[in-house]
């Protein structure tokens, strides 16, 4: 790491993750810095979600520590975490009766008073979030009338309104067609650079992630490594990611090819 660990937004030290009856990965050392776009990749069931759940305190670590800035995750309250980490999930069980603007407004929840009344700062942050990802035209629509791609944008807008230095997304491109996949990831890249927020997302789009991300976190076979896309390819970590009978990684085109 060329950057100092102290400037990182989130870091882990000797972290072991898993469930009561199943250890998923150990000795995890990751560092996330402002302005970085980071993809978490790995095969199905490798533990991407477990990792994301552990660093957002949804799940307790088995051992080791997660630090948000300089503070241990164990010692800070849900309220404090909500001012550092915002999340975007794949689930869409929220009330579809919400208008887009109302949904984005809910991102200000950690900052509003006990009745949830918006201050000038809150209103500005909401407007800024709406402007940043061009939601103006959708603002008064009900969520029930939106497409999957639009919903994903709106949920991202909500996370932006929460105005946290770190945004974590769980598979933001599922259910989207190829164009919208590229669109969402490109948007994430732009946001990470313009707002200097760190954006971490779990994804199966390894090809796209290799082209766009600053860092890749690879979860595979009980190990977690964090490298730049170049080094990941150079050190041949992707060659054995999948069983080699059907697909293989082509280092030149930085993509997976079906074996002929």
């Amino acid at each position: 790491m060329e950057k100092q660990a102290s400037t990182s937004i989130l870091s882990t030290r000797n972290l072991t993750i898993g469930y009561d009856d199943k250890l998923v990965a150990k000795n995890i050392e990751i560092n996330i810095h402002p302005g970085e776009l980071i993809a978490v990749i790995g095969v199905n069931g490798s533990g991407k979600s477990t990792l994301l759940k552990t660093i957002t305190k949804e799940l307790d670590a088995i051992s080791g520590e997660v630090f948000l800035e300089d503070l241990s995750l164990e010692k800070i309250s849900a309220k404090e975490i909500s001012e550092i980490i915002s999340i975007v999930l794949t689930e869409t069980h929220f009330s579809k009766n919400l208008s887009v603007k109302e949904l984005v407004t809910l991102g200000r929840h950690p900052y509003t008073n006990w009745l949830g009344v918006l201050s000038k700062i809150d209103k500005d942050a909401i407007q800024q979030a709406i402007d940043l990802i061009d939601l103006q035209d959708l603002a008064d629509r009900k969520c029930s009338s939106l497409s999957d791609g639009q919903l994903q944008k709106v949920m991202l807008g909500r996370a932006l309104a929460q105005d946290t230095p770190l945004i974590i997304l769980d598979e933001p491109t599922t259910h989207l067609d190829l164009y919208h996949k590229a669109f969402v990831l490109k948007l994430l890249q732009k946001l990470s650079k313009t707002t200097q927020k760190a954006i971490v997302f779990a994804t199966h789009e390894i090809d796209l992630a290799l082209q766009l991300c600053d860092q890749i976190i690879l979860v595979n076979g009980g190990k977690v490594i964090q490298l730049t896309p170049e080094n990941l390819i150079k050190e041949k970590h992707l060659e054995h990611l999948f069983p080699s009978d059907l697909i293989q990684f082509d280092a030149v085109s930085k993509s997976f090819k079906i074996k002929s």
Partner: peptide, 12 residues
């Protein structure tokens, strides 16, 4: 209204 996961992530 966002569901329990989101509500928790907002500090609820």
């Amino acid at each position: 209204l966002l569901g329990e996961h989101y509500a928790k992530s907002l500090g609820t």
